[in-house]
Nucleic acid binder design. Structure first.
Lengths: 127, 127
DNA sequence: ACAACTTATATGACGCGTCATTGAATGACA
DNA sequence: TGTCATTCAATGACGCGTCATATAAGTTGT
């Protein structure tokens, strides 16, 4: 009853879990230690940094990450309080928020991104 | 300065995050709804079920999952309270714990495993 | 213009994982 | 055998994510 296909699936899943947790853990620790931000904070910074265009962002950012709306809201809140991001209300739809990096946010992102990519290479790179 | 290799790494990482969260979420919800256990609980059941041999397990189980020792301890505690697993102290090393499924645990695992594999196939399977 | 519905974000309660620490048992070695 | 270091597991404080809900703004139909 223990189908070999099932075993293979389970192995695949476990292997994914392992590399996911290892990588996420390494990123988390490094970013925390060197830049005093968590991984999710960095990921939002990274997404905002990528969006050079002008749009009511908060919502659409949600479409580009598996994060919950609630989680996003809280992360953005922390980033705001840390002075790394600013939330500006949208003119044409006052429910929406427009996000943009502050100068501090942009500076931190630039540095942190280097570390981030390096760790990704270490952990995911085909070495 | 935005190296294409870096972009590729980032894409790879995000894609992994997405499938990881989707799959874990689906598993979590299904197991919770149908069997009233969380994903990590199932994963421990699954590992114990695989270990038909006799050994002071708690420790060695830790080597087969990215979970923290602390996390394992708490999960096992929940499983114990739920009557799905039993912790027996080891004769030859009284610091260690020997884990084994109760009948209820074995029964639940058998059913839950079917659901688990099915969802893995849905989410990871090359469809 | 008014009600009913929908959409964008925020918030509070709660559960789980992490880190640091503790307690207990074992090992090493003089 | 007595001391010191090490190992296994449990625990408390804490932070983050999730779910359900709240708040506020926009939309639709009459």
């Amino acid at each position: 009853m223990a189908k070999p296909q099932d075993r293979q699936l389970v192995e695949q899943w476990r292997s994914m879990q392992t590399t996911y947790f290892q990588t996420a853990g390494a990123l988390e620790r490094a970013l925390e230690a060197k830049f005093n931000i968590g991984l999710t904070e960095f990921e939002i910074l990274d997404l905002v940094a990528e969006s050079a265009d002008a749009a009511c962002r908060m919502k659409q950012l949600g479409e580009r990450t598996p994060m919950t709306q609630s989680a996003m809201s809280k992360v953005v809140d922390r980033l705001d309080k840390a002075g790394l991001i600013s939330r500006q209300s949208c003119e044409d739809d006052r429910r929406s928020l427009f996000l943009e990096l502050t100068d501090a946010g942009r500076a931190l992102h630039r540095q942190a991104a280097v570390e981030h990519r390096a760790l990704l290479r270490e952990n995911l790179g085909k070495d």
